[in-house]
Design a protein around this nucleic acid. Structure first.
Lengths: 237, 237
DNA sequence: GCAAAAGTGTTACGAATACACCCATGA
DNA sequence: TCATGGGTGTATTCGTAACACTTTTGC
């Protein structure tokens, strides 16, 4: 006989928390919400929510990011499960953290206002509730890992961007300075970057050429790749 | 007023599943249990259990590995949360998978017998229940990642081991052949390996020197390290 | 004495790093 | 005209990969 429910076991609320990264041409940023409810009212937190009965973990995380940003089909990856007994003072809750990379200029500003959300530079965050600081730390570290191996940086940029902008992004992710010439060689060698004939104006006097990233052109390369070539090695620290 | 329970949300059983790796001087192996209960009775599965109210995720995973092997303080790391709606036919369950590295000769044989458990070579596994094959695949890939960066391989070996054994282990993890001279240079350069004056007998005519791994000696090196030096790069495939 | 595995260095190649000057433009 | 950031190439260093013979000993 097949059971339809396990017996004598505890059940827990399962939360999803989203570490949402953005990049504003200068700083790597996180989108945080100001809690207007107890507990910890007035403090800052990651956007979160509870797993519903009709959605997978990935779907739930996607829904939660969408609720705050209005965006769909953004880069989203599971980070880690957090389950300390007292991590949530209201009730024991298991949280699965996801991190997301979005184009900071594309999100829905009304929704962000509705949730009293705000973008903070990653290196100047306010105090966060619960264990959200641990989640952010893990997400930062995972992003550094990921960005060194796969061209995920483009998820954080507009469709067209300049190489100085791209370099600034990588410098923000790795909290370091990179050599301009070496950077350009590596990123162009990687493949997938397509130079347009437009120049960006306004940010510098000379103006920089705009590029697009073409996933398909990159993928072709990728299959030749043995999987260990790194786009960037975090420098000595 | 502070609540003591969230309202209007669903609660789920939270399972922990353990991918337990061992190494028998030749093959990388997994410890699996034969289910003698429904559903999927008679099929093979990872050792698992449900999260209890008084234990964290890490503690629960540790308890579950201990139940099957009798071992404590083994290498254990969270892998990934699995939460597809229909992953468990009995009831919707969220599973957090952990992988563990143990010394295959040290585990409690009676416990293993009690659970009808058996060691299988990683490249010749039986059919597994639910989404356990996905978990195993993820664990393999994580072990490859981890072993390239940190000396976790030693968790799978007895206290004293020979360099040919160590090489055999890395070859099993990466499913490849490695050059003997390059291997020895890299592993010895890494630091932490201490040559004893004992020779192992029985496995070869000449006999190989036994080594120990000293975490402290390795750690010293580690701080000089920029964190990207890899012990092994998976070869081209 | 011979089979079988252990042990040992050098060379060649490719990738990463360091580094400095000219260019285009807006103010 | 000058200040600002964009754009470009080469030499050196370092790490990785390829490669073959000698040693020990059980049978």
């Amino acid at each position: 006989m097949t059971q339809t429910r396990y017996e004598n076991i505890e059940r827990f609320p399962v939360a999803l928390d989203g570490i949402i990264f953005g990049f504003d041409r200068v700083n790597l940023k996180l989108l945080l919400i100001k809690r207007d409810f107890e507990p910890e009212k007035g403090k800052w937190s990651l956007m979160g929510g509870f797993l519903g009965p009709n959605e997978s973990l990935d779907q739930s995380a996607s829904r939660i990011v969408n609720q705050l940003t209005g965006l769909r089909n953004v880069y989203l990856e599971q980070l880690h499960g957090f389950g300390e007994i007292d991590r949530d003072p209201v009730e024991r809750t298991i949280s699965i953290a996801y991190y997301s990379l979005i184009n900071i200029h594309k999100h829905d500003k009304d929704l962000v206002q509705k949730y009293s959300a705000k973008w903070f530079p990653i290196d100047n965050l306010p105090e966060l509730i619960f264990d959200h600081d641990k989640m952010v730390k893990a997400a930062k570290s995972r992003l550094q890992y990921k960005a060194a191996r796969q061209p995920v940086g483009f998820e954080l940029l507009p469709e067209k961007f300049t190489l100085p902008e791209l370099q600034q992004l990588y410098e923000a992710i790795y909290e370091t300075k990179l050599d301009k010439r070496n950077f350009r060689r590596r990123i162009l060698t990687m493949g997938g970057l397509i130079k347009t004939d437009e120049k960006q104006k306004g940010y510098s006097k000379k103006g920089a050429y705009l590029y697009r990233f073409d996933k398909k052109a990159y993928k072709k390369q990728d299959s030749l790749n043995n999987g260990t070539n790194m786009l960037f090695k975090p420098p000595n620290g």
